[in-house]
Design a binder for these strands. Sequence first.
DNA 1: CTACCTATCTATAAGTG
DNA 2: TCACTTATAGATAGGTA
Lengths: 192, 192
Amino acid sequence: MADTPKAPPRRSTQGRQKIEIKKREKVDHRRVTFSKRRKGLFEKAAELCVLCGAKVAIVTFSEGRKAFCFGNHETDAMLEGYLNGRNLGEIEPSGAYVRALNESKQLYLEASMRLESERAKGKCPVRLARPEGFWWDTPMDGLGLEELEYYHNALERMMQIVQAKIEEGSNTGPGPAPGLGFIGTAGEQSLL
Amino acid sequence: MADTPKAPPRRSTQGRQKIEIKKREKVDHRRVTFSKRRKGLFEKAAELCVLCGAKVAIVTFSEGRKAFCFGNHETDAMLEGYLNGRNLGEIEPSGAYVRALNESKQLYLEASMRLESERAKGKCPVRLARPEGFWWDTPMDGLGLEELEYYHNALERMMQIVQAKIEEGSNTGPGPAPGLGFIGTAGEQSLL
DNA sequence: CTACCTATCTATAAGTG
DNA sequence: TCACTTATAGATAGGTA
């Protein structure tokens, strides 16, 4: 059918389009998609943590060599525990500080959602800043080799978890790992 | 409106329900949700990898202390590069083996989707087995030390292979990497 | 735990600022 | 780069097997 003589109801957008799951041709599209989907991925991960009491750690590297990490203190605590050769069978919440973290987690999400609905009504000029060390979502500039190394060390320790689990029950654990403060030190460099 | 005297169109389900993002009360729900959402998370991650040429690594620990990992060869290769203090500026695809991996990635996803649509039509009795070493999505049962060892060994072996490839540099050329089938060997242990 | 089904809920591709 | 909008594609809660 040809277009009608009447006003073509030119929609402001065509809405979400279906795309093939293959590398996006245009660099620009790749970047936008990475941005959006990384955000979505981290949010899903956050929900998974809260809904199921799970621990999740994610590291992504964009094509542009920027790294982003997701995790929470629980994860860090867990890693730290392994690192120090303790709590090898202790992934479950193991203390007051963990409980406290669970609470902030909950509070963060609640606040986040409250904020969102407020903003939807155009009432809230404020924006949620960095959730005070709860989620890490820290871009690491590819030029900062030290940070990358730091990151890599963190990941490597994660692999040690597997090793630790294997040795679990008969071993006090390997060396203490210095500086497990992990990523979020100064953070906040503007990337790209 | 009350139901009509006619046949109540008793819907088989109520469809997706909205849930609050807070820890699910019932253990059972937590487990089911973890299962479903972890799967969803990994799928999103896979799509992010393919669409944007990104590298993603995820580690999750369920409440029940089972760990699941997600990653791809590119990620590992990248990490391996850092590990050895080389390729520090070389996150970009750096050789034939990376290209080959990108291709298998693409092929896997295509096959996966093809399969899915076939299954949707009830025509395909086959099921995609372990994707032949591309994605690792291997649960590590805390009780199955052997499996843990197997997993760990596979990871280690894989890293060695990648390392070898990196060192080879210009050696064998674009041939299909011989050892790159890392995990998929026996795999498939029934978990839980 | 896994897979499937359905009805919904949610994420997101494009476009715009 | 991020934020907002719209229309639609995709994810998933609850239920069943």
